[in-house]
């Protein structure tokens, strides 16, 4: 399972980074989204991978913590997802404003030398 997750993170990061360096604003937005997926998976992996282990402890008495998954990275991921979603939405608005004001979707607001 580790190798699958690692490959997924790697593929997402690589394609995100490539898109981030492209000249069109929409590609940049997509690149940032892919990168943020990669980072979210990475945070989840930082809490060690477990299957079939709940992160929330029940109310009935003392429990064995080794049976449970680490809840902290999951909470972090939730926060990170919300924040990256919001900032991506904001970036999309700026993208549209930039397209409207400059008439091009190039990141510099003007077409570079071909």
């Amino acid at each position: 399972m580790e190798i699958v997750l690692a490959l997924a993170i790697g593929a997402l990061t690589a394609s995100g980074l490539w898109l981030l360096l492209r000249p069109r604003t929409f590609q940049v937005v997509l690149g940032l989204s892919l990168l943020s997926y990669a980072v979210n998976l990475f945070i989840l992996a930082a809490g060690r991978l477990r299957t079939d282990a709940p992160p929330i402890v029940g109310r009935d008495g003392p429990v064995d913590p080794s049976l449970y998954a680490d809840p902290v990275p999951q909470a972090l991921v939730l926060t990170a997802i919300v924040i990256s979603f919001a900032t991506t939405a904001l970036l999309l608005v700026v993208l549209l404003a930039s397209r409207g004001l400059t008439g091009t979707d190039h990141v510099d607001g003007e077409e570079g030398d071909q």
Binding site: V28, V94, S98, D108
Partner: peptide, 10 residues
């Protein structure tokens, strides 16, 4: 400003 913001935000 918009174009500078685009870079800044990215």
């Amino acid at each position: 400003r918009t174009s500078a913001s685009l870079h800044y935000i990215a």
